[in-house]
Amino acid sequence: MVEALLVIDNLHKRFGNVEVIKGVSLTVGKGEVACIIGPSGSGKSTLIRCVNALVPFEQGSVTVLGIEVNDPKLDKLKLRKHVGMVFQQYNLFPHRTALQNVMMAPIQVLKRNKAEVEAEAYALLKKVRLEGKEHSYPGELSGGQQQRVAIARSLAMKPDLMLFDEVTAALDPETVGEVLITIRQLAEEGMTCVLVTHEMGFAREVANEVYFTDRGVIVEHAPPASFFTNPTDPRTKAFLSQVL
């Protein structure tokens, strides 16, 4: 068993009177890829937002590299240095070029040397195959290209854990592939990833463990080979028969 990097233990989250997460526990080891699937409204996005403290939660524990997130004295900056997040709507800063988007956080947040960061930013954009687009503004890039800039922007902080929140859901079908290639490359390099996704084929290929959530609980989890071929829970079976 590899060293655990992310441990979620009995997490509960409510919005007003609605409990959207009802006691979720999962563990992701270093270098592993966890895919969370499930019908919309089942609390998947909220779950990963709890991991980097974008959303506060009432009960339970989330630890990233031993840092407890459910702690009123949490040093959010320290947590966020370890956790990168990519969103469905890319959320690039539209008033900055692709290169500046990648460079901003290391310079402003980590106070690193500009020349060094710039060299790394060029390398990161090359890695996500956006050479030549460094000086384009987000509005001049396609959805797939913007999403790859967003991935590079998160990687610039050198995180230990990457969270992907339905990152291909807003993309045109023909650009989904180019983003998935980038994520797969990351996974192969040993980046620990948690993906909320609707791309079943992709989950099957890259995941170490697939989690199926419904109405705020994890109904079933298994390595992809057995998850997709022999689901045990009737809800999982019903969901898979709809999407596969």
């Binding site: 980097n52 974008l54 959010k76 900056l77 966020r80 240095k81 956790v83 990168g84 997040m85 969103f87 709507q89 959320n91 690039l92 800063f93 539209p94 008033h95 901003m104 956080a105 402003q108 947040v109 980590l110 967003a150 922007r153 998160s154 902080m157």
Partner: peptide, 26 residues
Amino acid sequence: PNGQWEASESLGFTRHQQLWMIILPQ
């Protein structure tokens, strides 16, 4: 859009930095 706050927050920007570097320029 709220996503601008979320994205900059998850990159570790302080609220002051978010406001002056990300939100107000737009």
